[in-house]
């Protein structure tokens, strides 16, 4: 009993790191610009397919193709921002959240449909020569690709943290999260910060997508569930805190695998969503609203 449970928890932690990575982009974009981009999961899907096809057609190792995925998603993000999201910046906050959510839905419908037509509804996953490799530790199995993914997630989150804490541009982003009017008075170009945060958010989703396609599988309809998972983690982790988001991801991952162990694999998703609803109802403004400094 204990051994399989521990194994389950390990898997939960491993996928939890991915949830954290997926959520951090959504959280960054929401914090900076109050765009709740519900097509985030589809961006993740695009990242997954990008790596899949680069691997399939060009035989480039998926871990090595991550920079390509990043460039691809930065570009996609730039286009979506310019064409669609930039038109929402002048709205008042409530309206901005609502309308970004709606256009996000339109966008996710489009991306799902296009992915379905271009790449069929098949589940895809990247199988490399080392995919089957795993380590054994105290009788617990640690698949190599998932360990590497964990490492990459951690590195990505730490890099983002350093960028936000140490660079002038990163500080400008944090200042905009806190108070965009004051930030504007400092000479920070708010629109540039919005754009930057948006494309970084897309790139992070892309990296997460690549890791999902290596460790698990991708398909055109995966987006909505990944968006919801990212929202759950965002809510759990609190806004603007990288460590919080990462921990939130782990909590969701472990909750899911514990649910799978005790109730059944089919109930993983439901457990996460219930967790989400409970937090949403009991702490409605605490989730997205608080400023770090007020606590």
């Amino acid at each position: 009993m204990l051994q399989p449970l521990a194994q389950n928890i390990i898997y939960g932690i491993l996928i939890g790191a991915l949830y954290g990575l997926a959520a951090v982009g959504l959280s960054l974009v929401f914090g900076v610009s109050k765009f709740l981009n519900v097509s985030h999961g589809e961006l993740l899907m695009l990242g997954g397919y990008a790596s899949f096809w680069v691997f399939k057609l060009l035989k480039i190792d998926p871990f090595l193709s991550i920079p390509l995925t990043i460039i691809f998603l930065l570009l996609i993000g730039f286009i979506f921002y310019r064409l669609i999201f930039s038109r929402l910046i002048k709205l008042e906050v409530e309206k901005k959240i609502q309308n970004s959510l709606l256009v996000g839905f339109g966008l996710s419908t489009i991306l799902q449909n296009v992915a379905l037509r271009l790449w069929t509804a098949d589940d895809r996953s990247i199988t490399t020569a080392y995919s089957g490799l795993s380590f054994e530790l105290a009788g617990l199995r640690l698949p190599a690709v998932r360990l590497i993914s964990l490492a990459i997630s951690v590195v990505a989150l730490i890099s983002l943290q350093i960028f936000l804490k140490k660079t002038f541009t990163g500080k400008a982003i944090r200042a905009t999260v806190e108070d965009w009017q004051s930030a504007s008075l400092m000479g920070i170009n708010i629109h540039r910060v919005y754009l930057l945060a948006f494309v970084i958010g897309c790139a992070l989703a892309g990296v997460a997508g690549t890791l999902v396609s290596i460790c698990y599988s991708i398909d055109p309809s995966m987006g909505l569930n990944w968006t919801l998972k990212s929202m759950v983690v965002m809510v759990l982790g609190g806004l603007g805190s990288m460590i919080g988001t990462f921990v939130g991801g782990i909590i969701l991952g472990v909750t899911e695998s514990a649910t799978a162990f005790f109730i059944g694999g089919n109930y993983r998703l439901i457990a996460g969503l219930l967790l989400f609803l409970i937090i949403l109802i009991f702490r409605p403004q605490g989730l997205f609203g608080t400023k770090e400094g007020d606590r």
């Binding site: 004051s182 770090e292 400094g293």
Partner: peptide, 11 residues
């Protein structure tokens, strides 16, 4: 300088 200073409290 805006009313109340409006410093970035979390920084």
């Amino acid at each position: 300088v805006m009313e109340g200073g409006r410093v970035f409290a979390g920084m």
